[in-house]
Amino acid sequence: MSTAVGDAAPHQRTFKVWRGDKTGGKMVDYTAEITPGMVVLDAIHQIQATQASDLACRWNCKAGKCGSCSAEINGKPRLMCLTRMEALPEGDVTVQPMKAFPNIRDLVTDVSWNYTVNKKITKFTPANPGTRFVAEDGTFRMQQRDVERTQEMRKCIECFLCQDTCHVIRDHEKHEVFSGPRFFARAASLEMHPVDVADREPFLKNEGGIGFCNITKCCTEVCPEHITITDNAIIPLKERIADRYYDPVTMLWRWVTGADKKDG
């Protein structure tokens, strides 16, 4: 049962925190004094200060903007800094590192695989000056409604909770053939950009493995920035790929007209 914000007197809560490294580990019990307004990261810091000074935990802004303190709290991928104690049910609180990535130590995981995937995505490639939306001096002239889809994806803080919860990565370990929701969101932000002229559809279909996504929306559920990754990034990309590779009518049309993907 959750308790309403502000009506809880200071009290002790037990935290079961995963301690270990790449060779293995176990859950260790700690207690923290909970006061109104605390978040899980506060409790972890208190545990570090009072009981386990060697507890490894990655954090930075404590404001849901740096994407560092990703963990699994009571089994759910969440940011520790945005998980209020009042919002958790009574009883022990479990805190574990993200399951989808190799553990370095305690709550810290090695997320470098994500950076490797990121490098595979063709970077932003603006049209030449003097063409659509690009002035002769190279500056862009765009309507707000043309960039809103891109801007939603650019809210991403790269916490990688979506990658952690995605079952294609988490359970099926398709890291080698699947980019994951974070990078579909990034690709969507570039593909839908009115100025960008690069073509990432072949990558998304083949090396990016977007077909592995079965749109079960866990990435959207866990996103702390509330980006509608599935509906506004992945499905629109799947539809563009259907246009190009699976729909016989649009395929024929493209073949007849010689249409390039950036014809709009």
């Binding site: 490294d21 060779t23 990535f101």
Partner: peptide, 21 residues
């Protein structure tokens, strides 16, 4: 891909395995 070290987490694997409450 991540090594098998992740399998040491307490939720393990298999149908229904989770730490969700």
């Amino acid at each position: 891909q991540p090594s098998a070290t992740t399998a040491t987490l307490p939720q393990g694997s298999g149908f229904g395995a989770t730490m969700r409450k």
